[in-house]
Design a protein around this nucleic acid. Structure first.
Lengths: 160, 160
DNA sequence: CATTACTCGGACAACTCTTGTCCAGGTCAA
DNA sequence: TTGACCTGGACAAGAGTTGTCCGAGTAATG
């Protein structure tokens, strides 16, 4: 029960991409965060498949957010990386064994599964309430001075 | 990001243990659910270490709940199996790279981590609201007739 | 318009963790 | 004393994650 580390990378990338005027290559994003560029590229592909970022190829290619930051929720990013499936999978063990319940009585999920699903929904609801724009705003108030601005400029600078 | 399958087993065991008058051996619980007895035993050991069940050794040994069902929450069981650590681990990548933030500015967790922690807390809060007694009550209304009673009797029966 | 350099994209291994099994040791009731 | 049961650890298999590589495509450039 541990979230993939790629979620953290992807969220940080989305936050800094809000301050980039031009497409940012995966290599530059990896350099900024000091992570493996090839592995980060894989996660960026997931974001691309989910439609959160658009990739442009060629010499000045890279990644750009497709929507405005307030229209991208943290849940969007998490589900793009982790997948939309629930954290709990019910194997219907109530139907198994000598005291197993008959299948026709198990149309609805059992009480245990319903509880776990409710918790999963509460988790997702919390993530849905926060947008990338909210994160950017919070980062702005967390530190003295503007920290995201210089990062955005560094991302589109000529070289490192 | 998938919950261990042992959580499902443990929860079902706790529910049926509420209807067992005497200690129930792990073998019998495994037989009831048609799962590996040796692997289930490992999870029951986790419940024992967490203090949710008491194990008695010897010929008529087995597992019994230590507290009344309404004093055991679903979260207790989940944390006994999965551990109490958060689902999200922050690696502080904001401090890394050429634009890394200085450590003295990172006393508090970053905005991303705070959001993930909040979602984690919401998940746990939901699980904490539901007790084993609640599950037993819900199971009673889910089906026609009493399904847990016969199971409790079967658990303490002489043989299968 | 051809070249070239740069990018993404998906297929390919190495690794870690979870899942599952097994056995020796200790304990209690009959 | 015997048999059944729990405890703890060591051990193997499988899945999922982490990480790497090379080919296809695209845009700038001369």
């Amino acid at each position: 029960m541990k979230l993939s580390g790629g979620v953290e990378w992807a969220l940080h990338c989305c936050v800094v991409l809000t301050r980039a005027a031009r497409p940012v290559p995966a290599t530059r994003l990896a350099e900024l965060h000091q992570v493996s560029s090839t592995y980060l590229a894989k996660h960026l592909q997931s974001l691309s498949r989910a439609g959160l970022v658009r990739s442009t190829q060629g010499k000045t290619g890279g990644y750009v957010l497709t929507r405005s930051p307030q229209e991208i929720t943290v849940l969007d990013v998490v589900e793009a990386i982790e997948g939309p499936q629930s954290t709990y999978v019910c194997t219907e063990i109530r139907q198994r064994g000598p005291m197993g319940a008959p299948p026709e009585a198990c149309a609805a999920p059992c009480a245990i599964a319903r509880t776990m699903y409710a918790a999963d929904h509460a988790w997702r609801a919390t993530l849905r309430e926060v947008s990338i724009a909210d994160l950017v705003r919070t980062v702005g108030t967390d530190y003295e001075g503007d920290v995201l601005g210089p990062i955005g400029e560094w991302l589109v600078a000529a070289d490192s």
